[in-house]
Simulated scan of single mutants.
Amino acid sequence: MSLSEALFALPQYILPHHPLSRVAQHVTRCENRVFKDALIRTFIRLYDVDMSQALEGDPGSYPSFNAFFTRALKPEARSLAAGEKTLLCPADGAVSQLGNIEDDTIFQAKGKHYSAMELLGGDADRAAAFQNGRFATIYLSPRDYHRLHMPVGGRLKQMIHVPGRLFSVNNATVNQVPRLFARNERVVCLFETEAGPMALVLVGAIFVASIETVWHGVVTPPTRAEIQCWDYSDKSLFLDASAEMGRFNMGSTIIVLFGEQAANWDAGLAAGTPVRMGQALGSLV
């Protein structure tokens, strides 16, 4: 166990996660020009953000820090991997982990696992579709592009909001906090694809002021006490591969799930590999 990681993670157990995130929501949406411009320019400098890729390259043109943080990119800034069976990476960031779902178990970090059933909100029927399937966990750092895209075309079936904590999702915390992704607040999006069911799990984190999807808008906040499910099975809502499906208003993690013998991950990917939206994450079987 790393002492520095433990010292970083342990205080998070007692922090008031949701009140701190509500403060972050107000701060990041402040439209006072002097304040938001100073915040944006400081952030660009600290995290070496490449504004040449942004559709709007002038930092002062964004009405708030959140508008800057969720900025659109120029169309040519990301190229899409070719191939009918190609699975596209849904986000910029780095691979946290990827591999096989062993029965119902997903690998988080050395010595730490969690179940697909608890990740998906505790429903055994939902989890059964991904038993012995594939998972990929992608961490978005603060400097990354924070819009999320479809790995493959799919028809939306359900969206589930699962309340929970808001631990940080950086490596230090992931290595220390058991079952972190199944404990944090999250939005589960279930799609039907040509390869069968696909889940995109948008995991919240401390200071992530909200999670939103293109079909619903802001899902959280507010944070509810109970799991809430929206059924879209009769709505015929289909999103093409690479289409934007949601965004983090501040950064976090997205987890991609496929069923058994539905997909294979690219052999060149491993924990820590940097990725960009649109590159090949793997392929459908």
Rank of each mutant, 00 (worst) to 15 (best):
S52W: 01
M51W: 12
S52Y: 06
R45M: 14
V49T: 08
F69T: 01
R45S: 15
P63G: 08
A54P: 06
G57I: 11
N66G: 03
F43D: 11
P59V: 08
M51E: 10
T70C: 03
T42P: 14
R45V: 14
A54V: 02
T70V: 06
V49H: 13
G57Y: 01
P63A: 00
R71H: 00
Q53T: 10
F65C: 03
S64V: 05
G57L: 08
L46G: 11
A67P: 06
F65H: 08
I44G: 08
D58S: 06
A72V: 01
M51S: 08
L46A: 13
G60V: 05
R71E: 02
Y47I: 08
S64E: 03
F68Q: 06
S64C: 05
S64D: 01
S64G: 05
N66W: 03
F69S: 03
P59F: 12
S52D: 05
S52T: 09
M51G: 03
F43S: 09
S61A: 13
G60H: 10
S64W: 05
Q53G: 08
L73Q: 00
N66R: 06
Y47K: 07
V49L: 13
R45Q: 14
L55I: 09
S61P: 12
G60M: 04
F43R: 09
A72K: 07
L73S: 00
T70L: 04
Y62P: 07
E56N: 07
F43H: 13
N66C: 07
V49P: 05
A54R: 12
Y62H: 02
S61F: 14
I44F: 15
M51F: 12
T42N: 15
S52A: 14
D50F: 09
V49Q: 11
F65K: 01
T42S: 15
F69Q: 00
D58G: 05
R71S: 00
T42H: 14
M51I: 14
R71I: 01
S61H: 11
A67M: 06
N66V: 05
M51P: 07
P63C: 05
I44V: 14
S64L: 02
